[in-house]
Structures are given as structure tokens and as C-alpha cells.
């Protein structure tokens, strides 16, 4: 009995019995290739469609540029919080320049508060602190606040463009567009 079980099945198709319609080894691999390409194209395509669907072409967001009054409106060494609520920008004037600081904490995007008495921005979420210039000095924030592009419009008012930002750690605060000389 045991020998019966052990006998191997007859050897695979011998050339003599080969059917003309049967798929040869080569043909098999050819079809496999076509099959796999079709499979990858279908899944890959479907996946691409899904991912791309998450990113609309048009965004309905508030305008990214605004006018922030005349340079002489600002006293030196003063942080102006007027534009914080509407545009998420602090207008800061130090001794020699005016710049537009982003109100987005570089840690996790909360909005810090300007504490005039302590002369610093303090984030309520995780306690990051920034100096008036935007340089981070305490708490977990990894880098300084970003500055926005600032220029003088034709009517003499300051024009802040939030679509372009300048990062200190990349040396971009040297860029002439990141501040206004006064």
C-alpha cells in the first residue's frame, strides 16, 4: 500500500503527446509578462487617480497679499498686532528695518502671543519662545519664525506678500525682499 502512495505521477507531457494548441514555456512567460504589466498598470493607475484626487487644482483661500499702512505708522522697536487676526502677520519694526513675521509657530503651527512686558512671543501650545526678531530661544521650536516678502506699493503703503516666505536658517533674511530699510 505504501508503495502505491509513493509512486510519482507520470512524467509531465512528453513531446509526443504535445498538443499544438498548448501553451509552450515561452508563450507562458510572454503571457505572464503581459498579465503583470496589465496588473501593475491597473493598480498603479487606480492608486494614482485616488491620490491625485486628494489634491484639488483650485483652492478657495483668502487673498495672500495685503497693504499694511505707511512705514511711518510704525514706532521703532514695536510689534504691531493689528494684522494678526485677519492676515496672520505681525508687523515688526526694529532699529533699522520693518519686517512681516508669520504668526505660525514653527513647532506645530499654533499662534504665539506677543508678551510686551517680557519682550517675546510665547506659544501657548508647547511653550516655544521667540524674540522680537523672530529668533527662537526657548522651548521646542526648531527654527525661527518665517518672514514674508515685503515691499512698498506705488501709493507708498507697505505691501506684504504671503506667498513668498524667508527662512533664517537658510540665510534668506539677508534677502532685500525680506525687510524694508527705514
Amino acid at each position: 500500500m505504501t508503495e502505491d502512495i509513493k509512486t510519482t505521477p507520470p512524467a509531465s507531457v512528453t513531446p509526443a503527446e504535445k498538443d499544438d494548441n498548448a501553451l509552450g514555456r515561452r508563450g507562458f512567460f510572454r503571457w505572464m509578462t503581459v498579465g503583470w504589466i496589465a496588473f501593475s498598470a491597473a493598480t498603479g493607475g487606480f492608486f494614482t487617480v485616488i491620490v491625485r484626487f486628494l489634491f484639488p487644482n483650485v483652492l478657495f483661500e483668502p487673498p495672500q497679499t495685503f497693504k499694511a499702512g505707511f512705514p511711518n505708522d510704525y514706532a521703532s522697536n514695536f510689534v504691531d498686532t493689528r494684522y494678526k487676526k485677519k492676515f496672520n502677520v505681525w508687523m515688526v519694526r526694529d532699529e533699522e528695518s520693518i519686517f512681516a513675521l508669520s504668526t505660525v509657530c514653527t513647532h506645530l503651527g499654533c499662534t504665539p502671543n506677543w508678551l510686551g512686558t517680557e519682550n517675546k512671543f510665547k506659544c501657548p501650545c508647547h511653550g516655544s519662545g521667540f524674540r522680537m526678531t523672530g529668533i527662537n530661544f526657548e522651548g521646542p521650536a526648531p527654527r525661527p519664525l518665517e518672514r514674508y516678502k515685503i515691499s512698498v506699493a506705488t501709493d507708498g503703503q507697505i505691501l506684504v506678500d504671503k506667498t513668498k516666505s524667508f527662512k533664517w536658517e537658510k540665510g534668506e533674511w539677508e534677502n532685500a525682499e525680506s525687510f524694508l530699510k527705514v
Binding site: 491620490v51 486628494l54 489634491f55 484639488p56 483652492l59 478657495f60 483661500e61
Partner: peptide, 18 residues
């Protein structure tokens, strides 16, 4: 900011309608 995973979650660059 307009093409990362956060954008996909929020449907925009800021927390808003989308």
C-alpha cells in the same frame, strides 16, 4: 505646502472648510 500629506488631510494649506 501644496502637495504634502498634510494638504491631503486638510484639503488645503490651512484648517478650513475643506
Amino acid at each position: 505646502a501644496g502637495s504634502d500629506v498634510r494638504f491631503a488631510l486638510l484639503g488645503g494649506r490651512f484648517v478650513g472648510e475643506a
